[in-house]
């Protein structure tokens, strides 16, 4: 116990000494299929030329936390360095039969489901480590989903700044107002990660809340 505290102390000391290469740990959280990876990819591609992970219309495509270190975002002459952390979608239920609808083979579907359950656990574990979190929601879906509220509740309890992104505004059914109504005390930025719509406002907001991080 004492040793553990001591170890943590040393770790913290070191990370403070090397603060000059400090980067803000920026997490992408949300339910499956909302577009977390699509958004993380777009940002990484814009500023590093490389993407972060694979995107799919089949839910639970991301089943491990994946990240890219030292992504320098340059916005209107200002620069900030981020560790981009893309997480598996969080769900309260996972049924392999859902994947069969997407023509995934039964054996693969079962494997995907198993990995997806691990992925959810991993996402939750990583929460503690984030400095800023973007909660990505599909703006064509009902925002009053307990998973969304659980994620935001946990961020608030940990005092981690939150930005809510209403993704897929290119779609007809998209409804940003509904998300704003569900989370009135938050900035909600409507974007299309797929088509790169309204990213300026997104960067503006990210810079604004990241400045609060010491």
């Amino acid at each position: 116990m004492v040793i553990k505290i001591f170890k943590n102390f040393i770790k913290r000391m070191f990370s403070n000494i090397f603060k000059n290469n400090k980067q803000i740990k920026l997490g992408f959280y949300g339910p499956p299929n909302a577009g977390k990876t699509s958004l993380a990819n777009r940002i990484c591609k814009d500023f590093t030329g490389e993407e972060l992970g694979s995107v799919s219309n089949v839910p639970h495509e991301t089943r491990n936390v994946q990240f890219k270190e030292k992504v320098e975002i340059d916005f209107k002459g200002k620069k900030m360095v981020f560790k981009m952390v893309d997480t598996p979608g969080i769900a309260t239920k996972i049924d392999y039969e859902e994947f069969l609808k997407y023509k995934v083979k039964k054996k693969d579907a079962k494997k995907r489901a198993k990995e997806a359950t691990q992925g959810v656990i991993e996402s939750i574990k990583w929460l503690d480590d984030m400095n800023v979190v973007v909660v990505v929601l599909d703006s064509t879906e009902n925002p009053y989903n307990q998973v969304n509220i659980t994620i935001i509740g946990n961020l608030v309890a940990r005092k981690i700044p939150v930005l809510i992104v209403a993704n897929k505004i290119d779609k007809k059914k998209s409804n940003i107002k509904k998300i704003e109504a569900a989370f009135p005390e938050y900035d909600v930025v409507g974007i299309s990660a797929k088509f790169g719509k309204n990213l300026e406002e997104f960067y503006e907001s990210i810079f604004k809340i990241s400045k609060k991080v010491k």
Partner: peptide, 17 residues
């Protein structure tokens, strides 16, 4: 509590399968 909700989700995931 929010932390209990995530615990519940985590334990649920661990039980699937």
């Amino acid at each position: 509590y929010p932390e209990e909700e995530t615990r519940l989700i985590g334990d649920t995931m661990a039980m699937i399968g």
